[in-house]
Amino acid sequence: MKKSLVSITDFTKEEMLRIMDFAAEFEADPCQRILLGKVIATLFFEPSTRTRLSFESAINRLGGRVIGFSDTNNTSVTKGETFHDTITTIANYSDMIVMRHSLEGAARYASEIAKVPVVNAGDGANQHPSQTLLDMYSIKKTQGTLDGINIMMVGDLKYGRTVHSLLQAMSHFKTTFTFVAPPELRMPDEYKQQLYDLGIPYTETTDIGEHINEADIVYMTRVQRERFLDLMEYEKVKNAYILKNAMLADTKPNMRILHPLPRVNEIDTDVDDNPKAYYFNQTENGVYVRMAIISYLLGVKK
């Protein structure tokens, strides 16, 4: 049975933990050439340099070979080929497809027509599960556990796909959440309902300083100007969600700051040298986690 990873909810808690274990093994010994002889297609219908290079680095470290494209300009997509035909064809050339697409649901559809496993590297505003797993790995690595962590999520909690997926994934681990967002960008009710149904406590506030000293993880996201209907509102709140070094004085010693990147100005550069800033280490973790995901789905790692 081929297994794909399209949405974070495709993995059980046990599978997530297994990815964490595999990633730790790859971090300890990054030179395991268990993908020798395998060809993996990285299809970026929408460009994303960071995610593509992270996947390709993971494949190369495992000894696999990469085919694919980083934008659709030189492909038959511009000749009007349907997505269906592109995927069906490339599935015949490769052992796995890693793909990003601007349309939501594209990866799920691909996983149903391709005869090889599909890894979703982002479908519009919907899902980006490898990001979630690398966020979890970063939490586990810095906190020593995934259980009972206090996570403060800051910024755009309405549209940010990374916060929604992380919330769903961490709901398996008795997490407590604090949501810090302007009223326009609050966590949608459907996610709060999910927490409520699971009996998971959460706090909502508009003030970044109110609960920061209780947090184990501060997960920052960008507040984008284009999300606001009323630009006066944006002007009012834009500086309220910027993390500055001075705010970290009384935070817990184990606290770490995560960010899915790219950052614009929501974390002041004066935070970068603080040992609690972890967002650049996060990107390195991404390679180990992607090695783990690929080798798990292909069944090459025992």
Partner: peptide, 27 residues
């Protein structure tokens, strides 16, 4: 955007349908 047969999971509260969750985009 493509010719795909749509598919939804029916969400309900009691007998009332509260929404249709798209199998593909999850909205």
């Amino acid at each position: 955007h493509e010719r795909i047969r749509t598919r939804f999971e029916v969400q309900r509260q009691g007998n009332a349908i509260t929404g249709l969750r798209c199998h593909f985009c999850e909205k």
